[in-house]
Design a protein around this nucleic acid. Sequence first.
DNA 1: AGTTCGGATTTTGTATCCGAACATACTGGA
DNA 2: TCCAGTATGTTCGGATACAAAATCCGAACT
Lengths: 228, 228
Amino acid sequence: MERAQVNFRSRVRLVDEVAEELRERIYAGDYPLGTKLHQEQLAEDLQISRTPLREALRVLESEGLLHSEPGRGVRVVPADINKVSAAYQLREVLDGLAARLAAESRDADARAALADSLIDQRAALDPWVAADYTRENVRFHLALIALSGNEYLAAEAPIVRMTSQVFTPFALVEPQYAQRAVAQHERIIEAVIAGDGPTAERLARAHIRSTMERIASRQSSGQAQARA
Amino acid sequence: MERAQVNFRSRVRLVDEVAEELRERIYAGDYPLGTKLHQEQLAEDLQISRTPLREALRVLESEGLLHSEPGRGVRVVPADINKVSAAYQLREVLDGLAARLAAESRDADARAALADSLIDQRAALDPWVAADYTRENVRFHLALIALSGNEYLAAEAPIVRMTSQVFTPFALVEPQYAQRAVAQHERIIEAVIAGDGPTAERLARAHIRSTMERIASRQSSGQAQARA
DNA sequence: AGTTCGGATTTTGTATCCGAACATACTGGA
DNA sequence: TCCAGTATGTTCGGATACAAAATCCGAACT
């Protein structure tokens, strides 16, 4: 009986699997920014033909992860500081919306479960492991989006992962900043659990804004260093 | 010389043309919500093979315009009131961001040009032509997004067109409401031209919120009528 | 009469194939 | 020696071909 449930309406398309696999690889940094992706070679690697691969590439392109120059292939989106700040400008309002809707969610249990996330976040702080923190940070923001229950907002997940995972070279998280971020997360979670939408939105926006500002200042100081 | 410029690095891909054509058809209401799209027949209609067509379908799927059930084809996204309000929740913050960034745009001339849009908007009001109003309304909101200069926000254009054009059956614009909407647009434009970002954002959000509320109330009264 | 089973047909999903554009290496000339 | 032009191989984009699943339809059975 339950066995049948498993197979119910779940024929998998290669496109979806391939798109997901490539997404994860890019998020994981397997292909550095600007890397050219070779269709034949990728297809060989994934043990599939180029047809479903190309469909997946178009999907990732429309998600903004890949950039294609007609006739000469596709490459991982080349990031610069302008792109990064544009992406964060969008994230400010997206995360604000997610926090507000999450706070207004009827599922009080799910809201309370957000607090568990803090445990994992703090664990990544104590013996500082940048990769662990990045992972938990993304998880937290995605959890907020999931809790919002808004499917169109959920479709924006790629931007969250892009800013936090793909644009990592620009973010360069450091322990003291991560600590501050986790503290901000904590206050957002409190507002969400309290069901205070407006406060949750305001705090979430301020949180992203402070991340933006840190990146902007780090970037300009980095520029200065590069020139020195 | 200019002639050469035209072809410069602009080999067109069928995928892009087809995606654009299908997008416009869906926006225009050629395929009612929930319509199943027949691949072979569509390819025949567009005079192309199924390969580029399928890539275009995947793109539109990832934009949220199409919904596909693996193995049994793809159909125009079936809308219901929940989807519509979720989409408008997102639009509230997107339009708010667009207005704020537009107001902060350095291109004062481009900001001033927004005022011209009002002329066309009012023209659609006087002898009331719903289709004209919808078109000008979409144009206005897209212009704001374009003016924002944020590429990631620009990538959200499909949601704007989806809410205003695809979900039309739910919107059902009426002249007296359109008139109020244009008045709101006018105030947003004033704030943008004045370079007052926060006010522009607040007004734009309020504008979308009022649209949401109108749709929600219309929907519930419609339900009541249907039951009566 | 309604329902269910089985086969034919359609339609989707994947693989293979082909032509054309792009990149690159080479040759010849200044 | 350096540059232009040409030739050659590679890679992309699109069309065709094939396999498997889903739908449709009719006949047989309850």
